[in-house]
Amino acid sequence: MIRNKLTPLIAAFGLAVAGSAQADYPEQDIRLVIPYGPGGATDIIFRLISQEAEQHLGESIVPVNQAGAGATLGSRNVKDADPDGYTLLGSHDTIALSKLAGTVDYSYDAFEPIALLTQTINLPVAHANHEVKSADEIADYVEENPGEVRFSMIPSSTDHFFWVQFFDAAGIDMADVRLVGYPDTGEQVSALLAEEIDFAMFNLPSAGQFFEDGSFTPLGVAHPERLDSLPDVATLREQGIEMDHSTSRGLFAPKGTPQEVQDTLAEAYGKALEDDEVRSRIENEFGSVVRFLAGDDYQDFLDENEAALSAAAENIDFQN
């Protein structure tokens, strides 16, 4: 009987201790896994925001680059980590893309979504000598040159899905185009500079310098509004192409991370994005927009995002 009476007390004490521990979170450095190498847009943006967020947490956020296996090495590491709030993932749409491509067997639902932070706006781009000067001219160019127009992409990556969605929105038959695969963005940049391809999908972090020196021509902005840094480039919607497309970067935690911890992290990153200098750099240096969503709002966003990607995946043969 004594044992039976004490058991609920012990259980209650355990809950109280756990609650207290969560209330004191964080009490040590937080490890932020970035599933890409250093220097890219994803790495730079997460480092920038996290440096400000740690001021609101009182502990350091330590970025750890863990590239490999199509960005799944890092995401798998976080997925399998202890759900204590001390291992996080800074990633984007690639989580869902990897599952759709058959690379992994998990998607957003394998994590606790903490917050959407930014969206980097994507653009269809041509080399400077190309006769096509705006996105609404691409369909006619393809019709005039069926089977000869070359679009670059990284198989199963963001730009692969971008082109599939663009062809659908612009009324282009995929049988009339050539999708040319490259291992990374750098190879695509080199190919467009050499005029080996007609079009590529880039954004300001990857192609801004080439817009400035005149090597590349931005053909449209896949966003409802024009970019401040490219005020003369019309949106796709302005050109009659009903399509928006961006790389949506957000913060994730292992499944089972306590809600109190999730809320603490979301609050810190939300405050970080209120900093004028951080916002200015995101918008002006990285061609991105600040879009903070947390809780159910972020979950709804991820559900819609995955549904759109799934629809586009029906037109992709991932074996080729």
Rank of each mutant, 00 (worst) to 15 (best):
I154Y: 02
Y108L: 03
Q119A: 08
Y25E: 13
E52I: 11
P254N: 13
L6A: 05
A71R: 09
P38S: 07
M1A: 03
V33E: 00
D136F: 03
L219A: 08
V164T: 13
L123T: 13
E260I: 12
D198Q: 08
Y269M: 01
E304K: 00
E238N: 02
H127G: 07
E274A: 14
A110Q: 06
Q28I: 10
T72C: 00
E148I: 08
F13I: 14
H127T: 06
S98E: 13
K255Q: 11
I95L: 05
N320A: 09
R76N: 06
G37K: 10
E304S: 00
A18F: 13
L265P: 03
A308Q: 12
G74M: 11
G240E: 11
Y36K: 13
V78F: 06
E267A: 13
H245Q: 12
L73M: 08
T185Q: 12
A12P: 02
V177M: 02
D198C: 05
D244L: 03
E195C: 04
E225F: 04
A21E: 15
P258C: 11
P231I: 09
F162E: 13
L57A: 10
P205K: 03
S98V: 06
L88E: 00
V64A: 01
T235M: 10
A96R: 02
R291W: 14
S91Y: 08
T217G: 04
G208E: 08
L230Q: 09
A21S: 14
E212Q: 10
L179M: 14
Y269R: 07
F151E: 09
T94C: 06
Q239L: 09
T103I: 13
F46Q: 03
R31G: 01
D109R: 00
F202E: 14
S75Q: 07
M243V: 10
L89Y: 04
G220K: 01
G19S: 14
N77G: 02
A311W: 01
I114F: 05
E27V: 15
A294D: 15
R150V: 15
A18E: 14
F292P: 05
F151G: 07
S288A: 15
N315M: 10
V289C: 04
L15P: 02
E143D: 06
G208C: 07
H245N: 12
T217P: 02
